[in-house]
Amino acid sequence: MWRAIASNFLTVAIVMLAAVAAAIAWGKNQYSGLGPLTEAICFKVERGATMRGVAQSLKEEGAIRSDYIFRVGADYEGKAGDLKAGSFLIGPGESMAGIVGAITKSGQSTCGTEVNYRIGVNDAEMLMRELDPATNRYAEVAKFDPAAEAAPQTYVDRLEDPDLRFRVTLAEGVTSWQVVEALKRADFLDGEPGEVPPEGTLAPDSYEVTKGVARAEILNQMSTRQEQVLAELWPGRSDDLPYSTPEEALIMASIVEKETGVPEERPLVASVFVNRLREGMKLQTDPTVIYGLTKGQGVLGRGLRQSELRGRTPWNTYVIDGLPPTPIANPGRESIAAALNPESSDFLFFVADGTGGHVFAQTLAEHNENVARWRAIEAEQEAEQEAGQ
């Protein structure tokens, strides 16, 4: 009798274990398998939201089949407490695991309506755009320069939308004065920016911000990020550089930034200036002369005069030896990397080639020939412009 009872108990236990194993396997499959969405949606996670509330909302929107499995899976992965506020694009058939990853990873919104304040060298542009989840494409809502025109009504009407996201994007080569002046005109920011940060210390990048954040706080973020970039790249620098401090490397990086708009040219342009420093030659770069005239407060808007090339300022590298005393703009990561690891070359000169890039030379004679070709291209371009008027 006891043997029969034990045998039956064992049979029941095995069946129960098998059922549990099957249930777990089914749950895992539900968690990682294709979800029920047939079209993409933009799902918002509010600040202070809980995983339970998010799971319920996702089920109501038809993005998941089971809020319970969603919560258990998030907890099993150790992500239940990692919710990030924001708006997230959830694609058709996205699994629960994929959704959990999206809403717990970086916190950077991937959909919804966004205001991107883009600060460039020549102007600043406020761009409001909205992502269509179905096409995964942004549609422009409004665009204007706050320094030159009033905000369009479509922008004003939607500025109070609680779901609106904000971003400040800083272009490479912008001066610190330009950044501060542009931030003063951003109507979604608050507070005075304070003193203009030292030139070169703001990292060109895109910064997601909260409406009403202090302008000084954004500048602090930019400064911190540039410090991080320098700290990361400085230990891997070339051994034989003619400058010995991160500050001097930042000066060189800013010159490289202003001399070429072609990314792949940066290490070669840096090599020219490094070679000149090694040879004891003056750098003779126009952007430094321009900075000496403007102090970074705006764009010169014309060509340099011969008297200006001969005029003495601390930044006129046609007159002074070595590097100028400060950077002449805020260089991006790639220009800093080029200044720290310039290409190996024998070039001492370069001039524009008419295509947006430059042609390089080892000797002055070669350089003069290249300059003559460039002058001919300039004359031809001017003639074409006059003919078209």
Rank of each mutant, 00 (worst) to 15 (best):
I5Q: 00
T11Y: 14
V12L: 13
M16R: 03
A21Q: 01
I24P: 00
W26P: 04
G27V: 10
G27H: 09
L34E: 02
G35W: 00
T38L: 07
A40K: 06
K44S: 11
V45F: 07
G48P: 06
G48W: 03
L58S: 04
L58A: 01
F70A: 06
V72D: 02
G73C: 09
A74Q: 03
Y76V: 15
G78R: 13
K79F: 12
L83R: 12
K84G: 13
A85V: 13
L89P: 11
G93T: 07
G98D: 02
T104K: 00
K105E: 09
S109H: 02
G120D: 02
N122A: 13
A124W: 08
E125I: 09
M126K: 01
E130N: 13
A134S: 12
Y138S: 07
A147L: 12
A148T: 09
Q153S: 15
D157H: 04
D161K: 11
R167M: 06
A171D: 12
E172G: 08
E172Q: 09
A182F: 10
L183M: 15
K184S: 06
E199F: 03
T201Q: 09
D205Q: 02
V209H: 04
G212H: 14
N220R: 14
M222L: 09
R225Q: 13
E227N: 15
V229E: 07
A231M: 08
L233H: 04
S238V: 05
L241V: 13
Y243M: 12
S244L: 13
T245P: 11
E259C: 10
P263V: 15
P267Y: 03
F273A: 10
V274T: 14
N275D: 07
P287Y: 07
P287D: 05
I290N: 02
L293H: 07
T294D: 04
R310N: 12
L323M: 07
P325Y: 08
I328G: 09
A329H: 10
N330H: 09
G332N: 05
G332V: 12
R333A: 07
S335W: 04
I336H: 01
A337V: 04
A338R: 05
A338Q: 03
A338W: 03
L340R: 10
L340Y: 03
S344N: 07
S344C: 00
S345M: 03
L348N: 11
F350Q: 10
V351E: 04
G354Q: 00
F360A: 11
T363M: 01
L364W: 00
H367E: 04
R373W: 00
Q385K: 15
E386S: 14
